[in-house]
């Protein structure tokens, strides 16, 4: 009899496991619209990293046009000294996509770190403080003495300090990143940023922005789970970058993606002049598609003739479908001056 009751218990309990869809009475209905316009109704919750408004600590829109020129003071020889303080940390848990939490390692609290900007010939002095638990350094791409290379001069954690000092050059756009082994780990966790060196004669005035193309390997399987321009996947898709027609746009693009050998940037409805590494004042290409390998970077310049919504994204479509996609919302500059009071062109209808 024991056996039968055992079998009966097993059989009955298995029924509950077999049919797990317990009917949950819920009256409230959520609705969401997919990108091809399909309306989906659900009694449950919507998880939509593509258009969900996330409350991120890091604001890619602010980062986009934020340049740190440092604390300037004249030197006896007539050149300029620019001083910066950069603090490294490695215990920050950041919400990188709605609901996804990642242990980012940061320079000055963000990924990418601050965009350090100087003019060719300036003396750049960086007071580096390592408040992390691991060793970190700052390694700049560019021309500088060996002892300022941030490779062999490892800075210990819990308050270790180092002062990097060198003459900014050559003119162009360069990355900086931590160079402590295991290097890949220190880079992919977020210890990188952009270093812009302006030519002495300056560049034509423009609406300037920085885009660091990066990836996030949230499950540490040496494959990126997310890609983005400036860390947050899909950010510039749900927060289009507002620009004007007939205004020169200049983007400093740096590819910091690891694991995947290449990345690229494709612009819709337009072509850009491309200056590899930004070291030459004459563009090398006029194209809408540039492929970049690790830490490969350059300057892109373009103007939009027609107003409207234009995508920009990796034409390695896998990357764009995992977050590296954005929108330029181009407003008619003449109309804008006319209708400054007549409402905002903020309706991009996603």
């Amino acid at each position: 009899m024991m056996i039968f009751s055992l079998i009966a218990v097993t059989a009955i309990s298995s029924i509950f496991v077999i049919f797990p869809e317990v009917t949950q009475a819920q009256t409230e209905e959520n609705v969401f619209v997919t990108h091809n316009g399909k309306v989906v109704k659900t009694t449950g919750e919507v998880i939509d990293p593509l258009y969900a408004e996330a409350t991120m600590e890091f604001d890619p829109m602010e980062y986009l046009r934020d340049f740190d020129y440092g604390k300037t003071s004249p030197l006896p020889d007539g050149t300029t000294l620019r001083e910066y303080t950069i603090v490294a940390e490695d215990d920050k848990i950041m919400e990188v996509s709605p609901g996804v939490f990642y242990n980012a390692w940061t320079f000055n609290g963000s990924v990418p770190g601050p965009t350090i900007r100087a003019t060719e010939g300036d003396t750049v002095k960086i007071n580096f403080i390592n408040n992390g638990s691991k060793q970190h350094t700052m390694h700049f791409h560019g021309i500088h003495p060996a002892e300022m290379d941030g490779v062999f001069e490892v800075v210990g954690g819990e308050g270790g300090q180092f002062t990097y000092e060198f003459i900014a050059g050559p003119a162009g756009v360069h990355p900086y990143h931590c160079h402590v082994m295991p290097l890949e780990e220190h880079i992919v966790h977020g210890l990188y940023g952009v270093f812009i060196v302006d030519p002495k004669e300056g560049r034509e005035p423009a609406d300037e922005m920085v885009m660091v193309l990066n990836g996030l390997d949230t499950d540490f399987d040496t494959e990126n789970n997310f890609y983005a321009a400036n860390t947050i996947p899909f950010y510039y898709q749900h927060h289009p970058i507002q620009i004007n027609t007939n205004e020169l746009i200049r983007i400093y693009v740096v590819n910091m993606v690891e694991f995947d050998p290449i990345n690229n940037l494709h612009l819709h409805g337009n072509l850009y002049k491309y200056y590899p590494t930004g070291t030459d004042l004459v563009p090398s290409f006029y194209t809408d598609m540039i492929t970049l390998s690790q830490t490969e970077r350059g300057i892109m310049e373009f103007e939009y003739q027609y107003p409207g919504k234009y995508l920009f994204h990796a034409h390695k479509v896998e990357f764009s479908e995992k977050g590296w996609v954005g929108i330029f919302l181009v407003s008619d500059s003449e109309q804008e001056t006319l209708s400054l009071t007549a409402g905002d062109p903020n309706e991009y209808g996603t």
Partner: peptide, 21 residues
């Protein structure tokens, strides 16, 4: 656990979770 994202062929897709995440 909390379900935060769905994908098909490793491409991120919006989705609904019932009854909740």
């Amino acid at each position: 656990v909390e379900i935060v994202m769905a994908d098909i062929n490793d491409r991120i897709q919006p989705a609904a979770v019932e009854p909740n995440r």
